[in-house]
Design a protein around this nucleic acid. Structure first.
Lengths: 123, 123
DNA sequence: ATTTTACTTCTACGTTTGTAGAATTAAAAT
DNA sequence: ATTTTAATTCTACAAACGTAGAAGTAAAAT
């Protein structure tokens, strides 16, 4: 079960908001806004797909994500990696490092992170 | 204009093959094979979308990709980054480094690449 | 108490996707 | 020359998507 593009965008909003009522969701959409019913349909489909759940509060609902962004994202990137890089994460990483233009500072940060990861592995 | 999932897979094959006749394409598909007509339909749609072209050879065609994998891929990852990481490539990178389980060797390679990039920037 | 507002459900409809049979065509094999 | 094989085009169809109106419902505002 996967999310379609529009559903994914909505999911992204939910992750950011953590919990959200309909009005909160509508607010974060940029112009031209989707119709309320469109968002409602999307939410319903996402609930069916088990990506979203809600708590009932009176007549309205507080929606929240059922899957963690990191989990969803991992699967996503792994798919990408499988599809485009022969299942080699490092091939992907090197491509990524070359192709996106990270600033010097960002690259340095990234190297720090890598060092930390390396430390972890070595232990 | 984007490729659907199945189209993307086919595209991946084409990138690997560089050029391919129908039979070559059918070969690389794992069981259960798609019907020839299915692949033909996909190819036709991809031609319409300007992702694929072909040279005519007798009654059959040699198909080839019109877009480079790296270009396609960049757009793809940038979408991901925009969608999930607030448009911050470094945020993505750090997430990626932590969440995918790169081996020690891979991490070290990656650090090398980063160093090279850093050298370039510094010049 | 009645109107307004916010939200949800139901229904719908055109488009895209995934899949492939039928018919056709052209080349290859016999 | 005739049959077989490979590829292409046309047609089709169910499922998924993107989008939203109509209608109902419950809470809030007046």
């Amino acid at each position: 079960m996967t999310l379609s593009n529009t559903e994914e965008q909505l999911m992204e909003h939910l992750w950011r908001l953590e919990k959200a009522f309909m009005k909160d969701i509508l607010e974060v959409y940029p112009e031209p806004k989707l119709a309320t019913t469109t968002v409602a349909t999307l939410l319903k489909r996402m609930i069916d797909k088990k990506f979203v759940a809600y708590n009932e509060f009176g007549n309205s609902r507080e929606y929240y994500p059922l899957v963690k962004k990191s989990d969803y994202f991992s699967k996503h990137v792994n798919g990408l990696i499988k599809n485009f890089f022969n299942d080699s994460a490092s091939q992907f990483a090197s491509f990524f490092t070359r192709e996106t233009n990270l600033t010097e500072k960002e690259l340095e940060e990234l190297r720090k992170i890598i060092d930390v990861e390396l430390q972890k592995k070595k232990k």
